[in-house]
Design a protein around this nucleic acid. Structure first.
Ligand SMILES: [Mn+2]
Ligand SMILES: [Mn+2]
Ligand SMILES: [Zn+2]
Ligand SMILES: [Zn+2]
Lengths: 134, 134
DNA sequence: GTCATTTTGAAAGTGATTACCATTTCCTAT
DNA sequence: ATAGGAAATGGTAATCACTTTCAAAATGAC
């Protein structure tokens, strides 16, 4: 899983990866730190968690997700890939979409506006199937 | 322009609308406040600017834009409508897209995932035509 | 082992946004 | 016009995620 990853795998990074493998929800830095410290008082400090997440995002192993509330979330991704979500207002669960809807538009936008796309944010909010049923 | 708008148009709101009509860039609450205070020491305070923006967004006259940095931006929109942007990393200018790419997907997502869409965020980053030319 | 480099983490700092709360303004009934 | 209650205002303090600082601890090449 970490084949050919071009980065120093510090203790902090390894611990963060462990936690992200466990929970498969979107987790904030503080969530991750809290989970670590629950089962080990000697787990990395919050600063290290932030730094590790930064490294892991640069390396493409983790993606950062902006939900528009001031709190960034993180999750494991297939190296170098990314995806978007349907986030439920009620239960905060999220459906992970299997394909990016934006990448296929890059060519058209480049042609129409002369704009060179380098990144994007896209998240969809609403009510999930389970919560609608209630 | 304000026909049939269902909200109390306070002094603060009017002043905010004035500023947003002038600048047609995405502006933060603090930008707006700063512009007001530049030309009038008695202009509404920052708290009022935030409150006014909240009302105007509810009324559908203004849209809030999340760019993923912790600072919300605002801009006038055609009442009840919204749109998305191509934001240039270099000069921070933004192209306002004429159609929402997500709304047309709502039906498909509803059918595929049983997810009822209520909102979304979508912003695209990169380098604009002008900055690429340099 | 020695010493330079990297990593770590508690505490302090930052910056946007929100909560408080006392004062002012507005509106309506008399 | 006036009194009184509701709404709006604005300075200050608080909040909260995140970043910076800097000194101590871990690492690793020689
Ligand atoms: Mn996901
Ligand atoms: Mn716009
Ligand atoms: Zn995408
Ligand atoms: Zn849209």
């Amino acid at each position: 899983m970490l084949q050919g990853v071009d980065m120093r795998l510090t203790k902090g990074c390894k611990k963060v990866l462990e936690v992200l493998e466990q929970v498969q929800e979107l987790s904030s830095a503080q969530d991750i730190h809290g989970l670590m410290r629950n089962e080990d008082d000697k787990a990395p400090g919050l600063t290290t968690v932030y730094r590790s997440l930064e490294s892991l995002v640069s390396a493409g192993l983790v993606q950062a997700v902006a939900l528009g509330d001031g709190e960034r979330r993180y999750e494991l991704v297939k190296p170098g890939e990314h995806h978007h979500h349907l986030v439920c207002d009620k239960c905060r669960s999220s459906v992970h979409l299997d394909q990016c809807l934006i990448e296929e538009l890059e060519e058209g936008i480049k042609n129409k506006y002369g704009f060179q796309i380098k990144g994007h944010i896209l998240e969809i909010f609403g009510t999930c199937k389970v919560c609608t049923a209630k």
